[in-house]
């Protein structure tokens, strides 16, 4: 199942990160003009930190997304770039957690986390304890990695219609998918 920037925009709108009062309607309409907005303001240049966080989130997604999900990069980049831009507090927390993640990656593979392949990234996440850690934004290293990286990309996936459909629900919680789907029977 292929994830697209459109999926990311739907999640961003659903989470209130993108758009204002019209976000719900945009998401409901499926972003017919996908080319109109790539999640960034025109002419905006990302900081180095932002780029590093986005790259690490892409790597995280490639490690923790299920195998039916394809092409995660555009989806995660769009989702993460916009969230970093719109929520500076979240960006600060993610930046701190990335330090922990990179440190673990250097110990194990002598590399930045974002440069790891999915299997290596999964090893780093697992060794750091993120798989079983509680997600706590101001918690231990493992808890912060779980919150800012693992749960961030899982939230993006499973609150999107595409991610929901993997499980069997095309209007997952957090997505403004209208009031038709609850009335429909199985397809």
């Amino acid at each position: 199942m292929e994830l697209t920037r459109r999926d990311a925009l739907a999640v961003l709108a659903g989470a209130g990160i993108l758009g204002g009062g019209g976000a719900a309607a945009l998401a409901r309409d499926g972003f017919a003009d996908e080319r109109r907005d790539d999640g960034r303001d025109s002419g905006e240049t990302s900081s180095d930190d932002t780029d590093r966080i986005v790259a690490a989130l892409v790597t995280t997604a490639q490690a923790v997304y299920p195998s039916p999900v394809e092409r995660t990069e555009a989806f995660v980049e769009t989702y993460a770039s916009t969230k970093l831009d719109r929520r500076p507090d979240w960006a600060d927390g993610a930046n701190e957690a990335l330090g922990d993640l990179d440190a673990e990656a250097r110990i194990t593979f002598d590399s930045r986390f974002a440069a790891l392949d999915p299997a290596e990234a999964e090893t780093v996440l697992r060794r750091g304890g993120a798989e079983t850690a509680e997600p706590v934004p101001d918690g231990t290293n493992a808890e912060r990695v779980r919150y800012y990286f693992v749960n961030e990309v899982l939230y993006a996936l499973y609150s999107s219609p595409t991610g929901g459909e993997l499980v069997g629900i095309e209007n997952p919680q957090g997505h403004p998918g209208g009031t038709d789907s609850y009335q429909r029977g199985p397809r």
């Binding site: 997304y65 798989e131 609150s159 499980v167 069997g168």
Partner: peptide, 26 residues
């Protein structure tokens, strides 16, 4: 359980998590 809430509290990820969500939901 709501699939997204279950995913965020799970002690697994990847295909294992998806299998669990599919088993739970529906």
């Amino acid at each position: 359980p709501s699939p997204v809430e279950q995913a965020l509290s799970a002690d697994e990820w990847g295909d294992d998590l998806l299998d669990s969500l599919r088993e739970s939901y529906g």
